[in-house]
Amino acid sequence: MQKIIKINSLNEFLTNLIKDYTVIAPVKERTTKFKAILDPKQIYLDKITKIPLKKFFLPEEELLLAFKENKITEVRPKTKPTIIFGARKCDLNAINVLDKVMKDPNYMHRRKNTILIGMYCTHPDKYCFCESMELINFYDLFFYPYNGHYYISIGSKKGEALVKHLPSAKKEITLKFKNTKKIKNKDIAADYQNTIWETDANKCLSCSACTVVCPTCNCFDIKDKSLINKKQGRRTRSSASCQLKSFSRVAGGKAFRDSRLSRFKHFVYHKIVYFKNRHKIYMCVGCGRCLRACPTHIDWTKTINILSKTKKIQKK
């Protein structure tokens, strides 16, 4: 059963939440991103955030261990109970993807401490293609704006407890997403060797922007730093990108994904094929952030569509 709340009562609802929880929501500052808010008026829902939600669960750099003399101590993050508010369906599905891979204790600690509240997005743009990515309902609460009200779907007991005091809706309202961009046939496993990928790879600068803004890119590096006397140091986990040559480089200098083409294909195939083989869902959630961020406007979704078109012609 859905709960219902007037659109202009939302601020009051959130103000109450801010008293007990750290509330993270999309805001517009120099860039659009998820950030802890103190006032509901800060929330910005018009556009998809440039910086994905993953940065809250997997910070750019995070302390894992601290060294002193020969002693090693663990460092655990300190987090208050947190609510993520205003995440889009793609953002939430990205968390579902990360849950499947990440067995990192810091990540799991943050996840346990977090309640996910989603918001139906009324403004998908020309880069969004979430419809094509078989997204599921993954949330604790999800808000559908309709006729001056928010209709709130409940996904878990944690979520239910937050809206207990609200009246129940008389009818169920769920809204469909409308994208202009679509990927038609995602079965590209057999097309790895197709030369069409070279056109995209030719444009690629290996700048790694796509992996920085991707909400499901979780690859990381473990780095050590120490004082010059080597008596104190720390080990951190920081994000890494498969688009950089150093990503696969081993001691001795050999980089296993040496060419730009192999790195570019690794990104696309990991999102569309490899992850699905293992976890039965697509790693890509169709948020379109990689397409928006690309400085040379590479659109691999178009390439996939061209592939399926040529396959159709070949069948005829």
């Binding site: 990192d104 979780n218 690859c219 990381f220 590096d221 296993f256 990991h270 490899y274 992850f275």
Partner: peptide, 14 residues
């Protein structure tokens, strides 16, 4: 980097 299938560094395709 991690050795338990999280960091993604050692992936050979899938």
């Amino acid at each position: 980097e991690c050795a338990f299938g999280n960091c993604g560094r050692c992936l050979i395709q899938d």
